[in-house]
Amino acid sequence: IGEIRRYLRDNNPIRVSRSLKDIAYKALQIRERLTRQNSKEPTISDIAKELDIDREDIVLALDAIQDPISLFDPIYQ
């Protein structure tokens, strides 16, 4: 049984949800850096270029780290 467990663990492929979060955090880091460098917010294409992925994929990734959508927050935060 231990062996089967290990097999399952070692062959547990990475979930998309996990990899999307990684992309999203990278995108946010790049945004910070570019904002500092250029004193203005980068566009989604600027970030996409640095990560070498489609703009659309960054949008999808960013949604994966969105707080559970709150219908109250946006106005009061």
């Binding site: 492929p13 990475i14 979930r15 998309v16 949800s17 990899s19 489609d54 659309e56 994929d57 949008v59 999808l60 949604d63």
Partner: peptide, 14 residues
């Protein structure tokens, strides 16, 4: 991305 996002409900691997 539309299809990927819809399919993500099935919690697929990369």
């Amino acid at each position: 991305v539309v299809v990927a996002s819809f399919a993500s409900q099935l919690d697929p691997t990369i």
